[in-house]
Design a protein around this nucleic acid. Structure first.
Length: 286
DNA sequence: CGGGACTCCTGAGGGC
DNA sequence: TGCCCTCAGGAGTCCC
């Protein structure tokens, strides 16, 4: 489940491989994604050069030399991998089941010496082409809150966004118009390190707790990026490598296990909120 | 306008 | 061994 760190890692590997490269052709293998792939929209990318690759929240933007932009969201299971043109061989060393690996291919972008494939098992991801001079005019990006790893994301910003809210802090942190890029897993971890109960309402969060949240969000995201993201089920970056941050999870998927906080004898509990699982220590998260 | 419920999808995993 | 059921999750949409 790619969240900000996994998308950032994907962006970095794409940059390494395809920046300044020219697209030879684009082939739709299976158009069915969250928004169906359209041949007439994507074929215009032929012959264009990739000028820049950016990340905003959990979105990747591939910007071409003629102002064409590919907006990509990995959904739950979206990922990229590369194949060599000449040998037609696919590097499956990082994947046990080859049939599953190619079964859910959706898009192939051919470059001079290799192909880039978009694969998505659950089809929650999407790829849309835009022609736009201003990234902020893209509908999916216009309502996003600030990037948590920038200076803009600070105590004053977060306080302004949550001080009068009745929603649970768990839902507020997952709200992309407040913080762009956090998902269920990292929010569980952030609340654990900040020692805040997930069901506490926004207006009940004190100043010192807001300071802890800002600090822990930045720290956890940075550490996760450094570790190459988290690998759960089948997340791999486009180089086929797996991240290791899941080894650092303190609450996620640890129901019934001991709390890691020194001197805390709590047992990690699991509950549910609007269809999302919540993991927390009922003893030290108050 | 805010917020909760529902929806898309498929593989994994548990029960029998 | 195999079938059936449930569950996971982002984000858009619907509805109160």
């Amino acid at each position: 489940m790619p969240e900000l760190p996994e998308v950032e890692i994907t962006k970095r590997s794409l940059t390494k491989q395809i920046l300044l490269k020219k697209v030879n052709s684009v082939t739709i293998i299976n158009p069915k994604l969250r928004y169906n792939l359209k041949k007439e929209k994507l074929s215009t990318l032929k012959g264009k050069v990739i000028k820049q690759i950016k990340r905003r929240s959990k979105y990747i933007l591939i910007i071409f030399n003629d102002m064409n932009i590919l907006l990509i969201h990995l959904g739950m299971t979206g990922r990229f991998y590369f194949t060599k043109n000449q040998s037609k061989k696919i590097d499956t060393s990082f994947y046990n089941n080859k049939s599953i690996m190619t079964k859910h291919d959706h898009l192939k972008i051919k470059f001079k010496n290799f192909d880039l494939i978009y694969n998505d098992i659950r089809k929650f991801g999407f790829i849309k082409r835009y022609r736009s001079k201003h990234i902020t005019s893209i509908d999916h990006l216009s309502k996003l809150g600030c990037e948590p790893l920038t200076k803009e994301f600070c105590f004053n910003y977060l306080k302004k966004k949550i001080f009068n809210k009745k929603s649970s802090i768990k839902n507020l942190l997952m709200n992309q118009s407040i913080i762009a890029g956090l998902g269920n897993i990292y929010v569980n971890e952030v609340l654990y390190f900040s020692k805040i109960r997930p069901d506490k309402q926004g207006h009940e969060i004190g100043d010192s707790e807001i300071r802890r949240l800002v600090k822990e969000i930045k720290k956890i995201l940075k550490n996760a990026i450094f570790a190459g993201g988290s690998t759960i089920n089948n997340y791999h970056n486009s180089e086929g490598k797996i991240g290791s941050y899941q080894k650092n999870f303190k609450v996620y998927d640890r129901e019934g296990k001991d709390c890691f906080h020194l001197g805390c004898s709590g047992i990690i509990r699991r509950t549910n909120c609007s269809g999302r699982s919540i993991f927390y220590c009922p003893k030290c998260q108050t």
